[in-house]
């Protein structure tokens, strides 16, 4: 590879030693700059359009009869008004279940790979599995939760939705927790050993607290991803027109509501979908910014 490059550097100079950049070379540069700027323009266009449409359609629906979208239940077809209070609750509930399952599991795994087994075979295996897991299509996480929860419990439920989301959150949490643990200088670990602390005492009292900003970042990033996921919830949490009364029954979520209402042929449901989409995107943006500020608070 390196050899190759030096060949190419020679290519550039072999045209002669005149120090002036020829017109052809200048034009080549101008052309390429133009192309790249065009690329940026084309890439920004859809994003701009999405944000604009979200604000236009979403805001207008939010303020149409404010604050009913936050307090009312989803409307049946051909009925005006309505809201998605149950879906907001459902998104919070399923994401919380996902976090409750994946955070302890992910953090403990990261503690093993960094604190106990750094570089050993099991850690490498975990690293490999984490990478594979992060590439698992989200719909397959949904089928997995369907297979192990829905079929066992006999019905669709918030728990099944949470299980599906936890599979998707896990790799994010493992990675950020590992990153955080690795940022703790080895001197601190030696100090802990030096005063006769056991690994448990050292990790729980000193190392984990110092890693907290990273873990918080991982959790918020994972939540941001989970909040927008739809495919894994389609056959786990399903949907519900009503407020959920228990975790073992189908539950509405914002993302599934967007899907159902966006493909429905009713204008009121379509506009509610836009409003829900706006709320999810704002939520995710907020959470991402939160994650950044959390990382900035790190000790090391």
């Amino acid at each position: 590879m390196t050899l190759n490059q030096s060949d190419k550097i020679q290519d550039i100079t072999s045209g002669g030693f005149d120090s002036e950049v020829t017109a052809a070379r200048k034009n080549f540069g101008k052309l390429m700059t133009g192309l790249v700027v065009a690329c940026v323009g084309i890439a920004i266009l859809p994003l701009g359009s999405i944000l604009f449409m979200l604000l236009k359609n979403g805001l207008s629906r939010l303020f149409l009869n404010f604050p009913s979208v936050f307090t009312e239940l989803p409307p049946p077809p051909l009925v005006e008004g309505g809201g998605f209070s149950n879906a907001i609750m459902g998104t919070i509930i399923t994401c919380t279940i996902g976090a409750l399952l994946s955070v302890p599991f992910g953090v403990l795994t990261a503690i093993y790979t960094v604190e106990f087994g750094r570089g050993n075979k099991l850690s490498q295996f975990v690293r490999f599995c984490t990478n594979v897991l992060s590439g698992v299509p989200s719909i397959i996480a949904g089928l997995f939760a369907y297979g192990i929860v829905v079929l066992t419990m006999g019905n669709f439920s918030a728990i099944a939705g949470g299980v599906a989301l936890s599979v998707l959150m896990m790799p994010i949490i493992i990675r950020t927790a590992e990153e955080g643990l690795k940022s703790i200088p080895s001197e601190v670990r030696q100090g802990l050993v030096g005063i006769g602390a056991t690994n448990f005492q050292g990790v729980t009292s000193v190392i984990l607290p110092a890693t907290l900003p990273f873990i918080a970042t991982g959790v918020t990033l994972a939540l941001a991803r989970a909040a927008g996921e739809t495919a894994p919830l389609l056959f786990t949490a399903l949907f519900s027109q009503f407020q959920a009364r228990s975790l073992s029954e189908p539950i509405a979520t914002l993302s599934v509501l967007i899907y159902n209402f966006a493909i429905a042929p009713y204008a009121n449901q379509n506009s509610l979908a836009w409003a829900a989409a706006l709320i999810i995107v704002v939520l995710i943006m907020f959470v991402s910014i939160l994650a950044r500020t959390l990382t900035a608070r790190k000790i090391y």
Partner: peptide
Amino acid sequence: IGMVFQRPNPFPK
């Protein structure tokens, strides 16, 4: 048998 290290390493506390 306690130990003091080359580089000061107070805990982040």
